[in-house]
């Protein structure tokens, strides 16, 4: 029983990181209709920036977190303005391909600016081991779970109450009608990219706290992708939950079957799910009209 509990709790902690990155995927998809293949890379860059800040101002976690957040905002805005906005109106395929090009650039830029060695992100917090009952977890793991909950709540409120959130839903539902209503699609896209970059960045910083910064970090993008599909590509909240489900499923598969199946568990889960609900757990069913 304790074993099961341990597996589930550490699964939720991993899943929370997936969930945050997956929410970033869904946010961009919802607002722009694109899959951003550079999501994992964006989260890696922010983590590296956080590491650089931590190296210069040691011991002040708030400064590091604040700096990393600011950097992720700039990164998101810059990507939208410089790379994505010129592609407005071009075929979706070409635009998605641009995000792949972007991923290559970010990945190499990381190695160009920093190096290939893994480094520990030391912000003076997050590594302590906390005991809940008999289960040991690191404080950063608790923090990432709390952050996911916070992000879920924040986005729920954002879509429901804020003007921009409603505008984003309008753009997602019908871009042309939204434009006619005076909503600037470009601005909505900018907001989506920025918000997506911020939550990817948060995930990156947590992942760096728990697993160090390394040039392999961008894999988190590919690993979180199943979470987005599970939750529904256009469902930001669903993607967050999807991440947790995938995280727990992975740990249970590795814990009870064999460690080698861990990496494909997410994919098996989504294949099974897509056979039943081809639009994701929380996604909207597409209705085809002739």
């Amino acid at each position: 029983m304790q074993y099961l509990l341990d597996q589930v709790i550490s699964g939720i902690a991993v899943g929370a990181i997936y969930g945050l990155v997956a929410m970033g995927f869904a946010l961009i998809y919802k607002a722009t209709g694109l899959v951003n293949f550079a999501q994992g890379e964006m989260s890696m860059i922010t983590a590296y920036i956080a590491w650089s800040i931590a190296g210069t101002v040691s011991g002040n976690p708030w400064l590091v977190v604040g700096g990393a957040l600011a950097a992720s905002v700039v990164l998101g805005l810059a990507i939208e303005r410089v790379v994505m906005r010129p592609m407005l109106g071009e075929p979706v395929f070409a635009t998605v391909m641009v995000t792949i090009g972007l991923a290559v650039v970010l990945r190499s830029a990381t190695l160009l600016i920093w190096d290939a060695y893994p480094h520990a992100l030391d912000i003076g917090a997050g590594r302590e081991i906390v005991h809940i009952g008999d289960t040991g977890v690191r404080s950063a793991q608790l923090a990432v779970m709390a952050t996911l909950l916070l992000a879920l709540g924040a986005f729920w409120a954002f879509f429901r109450y804020s003007r921009i959130g409603k505008a984003m839903r309008a753009v997602a539902a019908d871009e042309r009608a939204a434009k006619l209503m005076g909503i600037s699609a470009a601005r909505i896209h900018a907001v989506a990219w920025t918000a997506s970059s911020v939550i990817a960045g948060i995930a990156g910083v947590f992942s760096a706290l728990l697993y160090d910064v390394s040039p392999n970090m961008f894999h988190v993008g590919l690993k979180s992708f199943p979470a987005t599909i599970l939750g529904g590509l256009d469902s930001v909240l669903g993607s967050g939950f999807g991440g947790v489900i995938i995280g727990v499923a992975e740990n249970l598969a590795a814990g009870y079957l064999a460690p080698s199946v861990k990496e494909i568990t997410g994919f098996i889960v989504i294949i099974a799910m897509l056979m039943i609900r081809p639009f994701g757990l929380f996604g909207e069913r597409e209705i085809e009209r002739v």
Binding site: A13, N216, E250, A254, P259, K262
Partner: peptide, 30 residues
């Protein structure tokens, strides 16, 4: 484990619950 994996929580839980006293870590660095 698959190359490039980052989280080893489930694997290590397995190792612990099996009661391993000598453990060979076959990874690279990370």
């Amino acid at each position: 484990y698959k190359k490039g994996q980052q989280d080893f929580s489930s694997e290590m839980l397995r190792v612990r619950s099996a009661g391993a006293e000598v453990f060979m870590a076959g990874g690279v660095i990370g």
